[in-house]
Computed example of a mutant assay.
Amino acid sequence: MSSVIKNGRVYWLVQKQESEALLFAVDEQVVSDVERRLVDLVLSTKKEPEPKPARMPTEEERKAGLVRDWLHQQQERGFTQAEMPDQLVSLLSLYSTKVPILLYGDYTTSRRVHYAELKKLLDSFFDAEITLIPLTEKEWLILGSEKILTMDGSDDRISDEESLEDKLAAMGYGLHEMLENEWVGEAHLAVHYPMTPAKSLYSVVLQLRETIMLGRTYHVGSSMHLPWELQLEKLVHLVPEAEKASFLERVLKRLDVAFDPETMTTLEQFFQLDCNVSETAKKLYIHRNTLLYRLDKFKQETGLDVRTFNNAVLVKIAMLLYKVTKRK
């Protein structure tokens, strides 16, 4: 790469990219012929950095991609139920019962999570082989054997006393805590009951997506979403928008007064603790009489006493509707 002398200045081409060029220039008098040739030599030996070779997917990742493509095809056709072809089932040995988990990584678009990176992290956490299927750029389906529900090695007798829902929730919360500490960005998880992928993988994926959607819609601060805890939310979500607004008007005429932040927090804790006054007061770190005052105040403003079953149900539904309507 030789230099060029023009109008008393020496020019070197340092870099060229498409229609743009980067030049280096000095006055001809300040550089000797030897120095000029030395710069020519240095620039001539300068090499452009070689592009990194494209990452080749592993055989396991390739097989998982085939399952992903099949799931996408069923969705594009508008199906709600579909059995997997035998050749796909055998590829990833999906005949046995699996515990399905849907992971949605709420990371930035500049952050790309690679299959091998996430697979290694999950294998280490469960201390067992799991099946990982990338559904979208941010969405991952995890399939583990039923052994992952007892991975803590707890006493079988104690474990038997737990419900299946308790075991699934404990596993899900443990996984979410690990992802929070080890992963980049916020992660949302949904867990489903054990199932046979060959028969119901597609419908379960749809249900898991619905579970995350309901959880993110009605419980904004939550990142762990369990379908058995979102039954009422699922029902309410099916109500037409006009009916939602009409219900709120009938039940709570002044929403801004009824659902101020303090009241919302109080009622959410009250319902979460099965309308137990003493436990709610402890949870909120307030005196029992302070809680009773807040409940009485709400009754005066709305005419609804949440200490009675019927009124508690009405207010619970109204709170769910209010959360989604106020954001629109």
Rank of each mutant, 00 (worst) to 15 (best):
T109K: 09
V191N: 02
R254D: 14
H114R: 08
S200C: 11
K47H: 13
L320C: 05
E177T: 08
H114I: 08
E60C: 01
G221P: 06
L121K: 05
K47A: 10
L267H: 02
L255E: 14
L102R: 03
E117P: 00
A170F: 10
W140T: 01
L143Y: 01
K316G: 04
L23E: 07
I142Y: 05
T196V: 13
K167T: 02
L292R: 11
D296A: 11
G8D: 15
E186Y: 14
F259H: 02
L291M: 08
S223G: 07
P57L: 08
L226D: 03
E117Q: 09
F270I: 05
D152T: 06
A25H: 13
K297G: 02
E165V: 04
A170V: 08
V257E: 08
E262A: 07
Q73A: 10
T325F: 05
R288K: 08
Y193V: 11
L149T: 09
C275S: 10
E210F: 01
H192I: 03
E279R: 11
H176Q: 13
G105Y: 12
K138H: 14
L132M: 07
M1W: 13
K328T: 13
Q231N: 14
S44T: 15
S145I: 05
V277C: 01
R9S: 10
R37T: 14
H192F: 15
F125N: 02
L92C: 02
S163M: 10
A190P: 02
L141Q: 00
T290K: 11
S124M: 15
I101K: 02
I133T: 00
M213T: 06
L23M: 12
T211W: 06
H225F: 15
H188F: 15
T136S: 10
T45L: 09
D305W: 02
E262I: 11
A190D: 03
D166A: 06
N7Y: 15
P134M: 03
L38A: 06
E146Q: 12
L214A: 08
T325E: 14
L189P: 00
E18V: 11
E233W: 03
E186L: 12
T308Q: 09
R294T: 01
L284Q: 02
A116G: 06
Q87E: 15
W12R: 02
E241H: 09
L122G: 00
Q15G: 12
I286K: 03
K234P: 00
M84N: 00
Y11A: 04
V30K: 07
A21V: 06
Q75Y: 09
L292E: 04
M213L: 06
N311E: 09
D123G: 07
E162R: 11
N276C: 11
S44D: 15
T58D: 01
P197D: 00
N289E: 13
Y104C: 04
Y115T: 03
F79Q: 10
S200Y: 15
L295P: 01
E165M: 08
L230T: 02
